[in-house]
Computed example of a mutant assay.
Amino acid sequence: MKDAVATEVEAGGLRGRMYVSRAVSGARPESAAGDPAVVLIHGIGVSHRYLARLHQVLARTVETISIDLPGFGSSPRPDRQLTAADHGRFIHDVLDSAGVGPRVLVGHSMGAQFVLEAALQRPDQVPHAVLMGPVVDVRHRTVLRQMLALTKDALLFETPGSNALVFSDYLRCGPGWYFKQLRVMMNYRTEDRIRELGTPVMILRGATDPIATGEWCRILARRAPAGTLAEVPGCGHVVQYTGTAQVAEAISSFAGLPGSGAPEQALRRR
């Protein structure tokens, strides 16, 4: 990732990679020294690579961190299945070790489950959370339905570039680890866990996303004690790649971060 410092990270016997970008020289307006970092968390089978566009836009004005979780990207595969709570603890442990203070957590797809757990574990350290394209829709709670929705999204709503990143990362992940984590993803009840989240949370989706559907995301926003919903028109599931500027604007505005500047009309807020 351009201009990001990559380091190996380890916590609890698990290993991953962290990519850190501090605000680009000359592009960051004056802001409070206590601005939280933005931490981007990928979904099942993938890595930081499909978050790189969003990372680079956010890093113009705020410290931005992407993490490859254990077993994903080039990180070693753990010898046991990891729960969403395990990933949440890993996220906090490696950020603590790196001296990162308050952290706005942004998770995509299954990464939304990891971020939700992390926010529940340490609400004092997470002033805002963003769940992008969260899973698993209550009407799609079978592997077959998930695969059909993924196929529809790839064929109709994604670009060749986003598909190439996602499916090449699936190959790197390999079927063994993918299917271990798929069982975790399918059994996780986002709609129940979000009821316990006092942290302000934004549910963010591409308006044509067939995986995180509009009705599903409205359910989550209503069930969260401090939830809001935003949609990016014309984008599918990998909204951070195809609607990068709008997603960065939504995150910055929601969390009160410096760097807001994308056209407000590019978002639908509810």
Score class of each variant (00 low, 15 high):
residue 2 K to L: 13
residue 3 D to I: 06
residue 4 A to P: 04
residue 10 E to H: 12
residue 12 G to A: 15
residue 14 L to Y: 12
residue 16 G to V: 11
residue 17 R to V: 03
residue 20 V to R: 14
residue 21 S to C: 11
residue 23 A to M: 06
residue 24 V to E: 11
residue 26 G to A: 09
residue 26 G to N: 08
residue 30 E to L: 15
residue 31 S to P: 02
residue 36 P to C: 07
residue 40 L to A: 07
residue 43 G to Q: 14
residue 43 G to C: 09
residue 46 V to N: 07
residue 47 S to A: 14
residue 51 L to C: 01
residue 53 R to D: 13
residue 54 L to M: 12
residue 56 Q to I: 02
residue 59 A to F: 15
residue 61 T to V: 02
residue 62 V to M: 04
residue 64 T to V: 05
residue 68 D to G: 10
residue 69 L to S: 07
residue 72 F to S: 06
residue 77 R to G: 05
residue 79 D to V: 02
residue 81 Q to T: 13
residue 86 D to E: 10
residue 91 I to M: 07
residue 91 I to D: 08
residue 95 L to N: 12
residue 100 V to T: 13
residue 102 P to V: 07
residue 103 R to H: 01
residue 106 V to N: 01
residue 106 V to Y: 07
residue 106 V to A: 01
residue 107 G to D: 01
residue 108 H to N: 14
residue 112 A to M: 06
residue 114 F to P: 07
residue 115 V to K: 00
residue 115 V to D: 00
residue 115 V to P: 03
residue 119 A to N: 04
residue 121 Q to L: 10
residue 125 Q to C: 03
residue 125 Q to H: 13
residue 126 V to P: 03
residue 126 V to Q: 02
residue 128 H to R: 12
residue 128 H to W: 14
residue 130 V to G: 00
residue 137 D to C: 04
residue 147 M to W: 11
residue 149 A to W: 08
residue 150 L to N: 12
residue 151 T to G: 13
residue 153 D to F: 05
residue 160 P to T: 06
residue 163 N to D: 05
residue 165 L to Q: 14
residue 168 S to M: 02
residue 170 Y to H: 12
residue 172 R to G: 05
residue 172 R to P: 05
residue 180 K to L: 08
residue 183 R to N: 11
residue 185 M to E: 14
residue 186 M to V: 07
residue 186 M to L: 14
residue 190 T to P: 11
residue 193 R to Y: 04
residue 195 R to M: 10
residue 196 E to S: 15
residue 196 E to K: 12
residue 196 E to A: 15
residue 198 G to I: 09
residue 199 T to W: 03
residue 203 I to R: 03
residue 208 T to H: 10
residue 211 I to N: 04
residue 212 A to N: 05
residue 214 G to D: 15
residue 216 W to D: 00
residue 218 R to C: 01
residue 220 L to K: 03
residue 225 P to F: 05
residue 228 T to L: 06
residue 230 A to D: 01
residue 231 E to I: 01
residue 231 E to D: 11
residue 232 V to E: 09
residue 234 G to C: 13
residue 234 G to S: 08
residue 237 H to K: 07
residue 241 Y to A: 10
residue 243 G to E: 00
residue 243 G to K: 08
residue 245 A to R: 13
residue 246 Q to F: 12
residue 249 E to F: 09
residue 252 S to Y: 01
residue 255 A to Q: 03
residue 257 L to W: 12
residue 258 P to Q: 10
residue 259 G to F: 08
residue 263 P to F: 09
residue 264 E to Y: 02
residue 267 L to R: 03
